[in-house]
Amino acid sequence: DCSRLFDNDLPDGWEERRTASGRIQYLNHITRTTQWERPTRPASEYSSP
């Protein structure tokens, strides 16, 4: 389970979450994917897998 964190500095379409182990990951709501690196572009600029 991940708990949500609120971060207004993220590009549109992204959400920051913390894993059960405390690591931060980023959820792309457009492609429904996650990544460990902080995003720098809006989620819509990433392609679906």
Rank of each mutant, 00 (worst) to 15 (best):
R32K: 15
T33C: 15
I30K: 05
Y46L: 10
D9W: 04
S48A: 12
P42Y: 08
H29R: 15
I30G: 11
D7C: 06
D9N: 14
D12Q: 15
P42F: 08
N8C: 11
T34L: 07
D12P: 13
I24T: 13
W14N: 03
R4H: 15
P49G: 11
S21G: 14
N8Q: 09
E15D: 07
Y46M: 07
Y26W: 04
L27R: 07
T33W: 10
R32P: 07
T19A: 06
T31C: 12
P42K: 12
A20Y: 03
L5W: 01
S21C: 08
T34G: 05
R32W: 07
P42M: 05
F6P: 14
E45Q: 05
T19D: 12
N28V: 00
A20F: 01
S44W: 06
R23E: 15
C2Q: 13
S48D: 13
E45W: 05
R32H: 15
E16I: 13
R18W: 02
W14T: 02
P39H: 09
P42T: 09
I30C: 10
Y26P: 03
E15H: 07
C2F: 15
T33M: 12
W36G: 09
W36D: 13
G13N: 00
E37L: 02
I24Q: 07
E16F: 05
Y46A: 09
A43E: 10
A43C: 05
P11T: 06
R18M: 09
F6L: 09
D1Y: 02
D12F: 09
T34S: 05
L5F: 06
S47T: 09
R23I: 07
A20I: 04
P42D: 02
R32A: 14
Q35E: 06
L10A: 02
T34F: 14
I24S: 08
S21A: 15
Y46K: 14
E16A: 11
D12L: 11
T40C: 14
Q35F: 12
P42E: 05
E37Y: 01
S3E: 14
I30N: 09
L10W: 02
Y46P: 10
L5V: 07
W14E: 02
T40I: 14
T34W: 03
E16S: 10
S44R: 13
L5N: 15
R18F: 10
I24H: 00
L5K: 11
L5C: 05
W36P: 05
P11Q: 07
R18A: 11
T40M: 14
L27A: 08
D12M: 04
R23Q: 13
S48M: 12
E45A: 11
P11S: 03
S3L: 10
T19F: 04
P11L: 04
R23N: 04
G13K: 02
R23G: 11
R4W: 08
S21V: 10
F6I: 10
P49V: 15
C2R: 05
E16W: 07
W14A: 02
D7N: 11
S21M: 09
L27H: 06
S44T: 09
R17V: 12
D7P: 04
P39V: 02
A20K: 10
R32C: 13
T40K: 13
N8F: 04
Q25G: 07
E45V: 05
T31R: 07
P39R: 00
R38G: 02
R4K: 11
S48C: 11
W36I: 01
G13H: 04
R4N: 15
Y26E: 02
S47R: 09
S48H: 12
E37D: 06
R17E: 08
E16R: 05
G22S: 05
I30D: 06
T19L: 11
D1T: 02
R4A: 13
D12C: 08
E16C: 08
F6S: 12
L10M: 06
L10T: 03
I30L: 09
L27D: 03
D12V: 08
R32L: 14
R17Q: 14
T34N: 01
D9K: 14
D12W: 05
G22W: 00
E37A: 01
S44A: 11
S21Y: 06
W36C: 10
T33I: 10
N8R: 10
P39S: 02
Y26Q: 02
N28A: 01
Y26F: 09
E16N: 02
E15N: 04
E15K: 03
S47D: 11
T31S: 12
T40D: 08
R17I: 06
S21D: 14
C2S: 10
E45K: 06
G13V: 01
R41L: 15
G13R: 01
D9E: 10
S3Q: 14
G22V: 00
Y46G: 12
L5A: 14
D9Q: 07
C2A: 06
S21T: 14
N28K: 00
P42R: 09
Y26V: 02
N8T: 14
D12I: 11
T31E: 14
A43M: 05
W14V: 04
L10S: 02
T40G: 12
P39G: 02
R23P: 06
S3F: 09
A20N: 13
I24A: 14
E37F: 01
S21Q: 10
N28D: 05
R32M: 15
G22F: 09
G22A: 03
Q25T: 04
R18G: 07
C2M: 14
W36M: 13
I30S: 09
N8S: 06
T33K: 15
Q35R: 04
N28Q: 01
Y46T: 13
Y46V: 11
P11N: 01
A20W: 04
E15Q: 10
A20P: 10
D1G: 00
F6H: 15
I30V: 11
I30H: 11
R17C: 10
I30P: 03
A43D: 09
N28H: 06
Y46N: 08
H29F: 07
S44D: 13
I30Q: 08
Y46E: 13
A43H: 07
I24L: 09
R32D: 15
G22D: 08
D12Y: 12
D7T: 13
S48N: 06
I30M: 07
Y46H: 11
T40F: 04
W14M: 01
E45N: 02
L5E: 08
T34Q: 07
L5H: 11
D1W: 00
I24M: 03
S47M: 10
W14I: 03
D12K: 15
L10I: 04
S47Y: 15
G13D: 03
T33D: 11
T31F: 03
N28I: 00
N8L: 07
Y26S: 01
W14F: 04
Q35V: 10
D9S: 14
W14Y: 01
T40S: 13
R18C: 12
T33Q: 15
N8K: 11
R18Q: 05
R4G: 11
L27N: 12
R18H: 10
Y46R: 09
H29T: 15
I24N: 04
D7E: 10
D9R: 13
T33S: 15
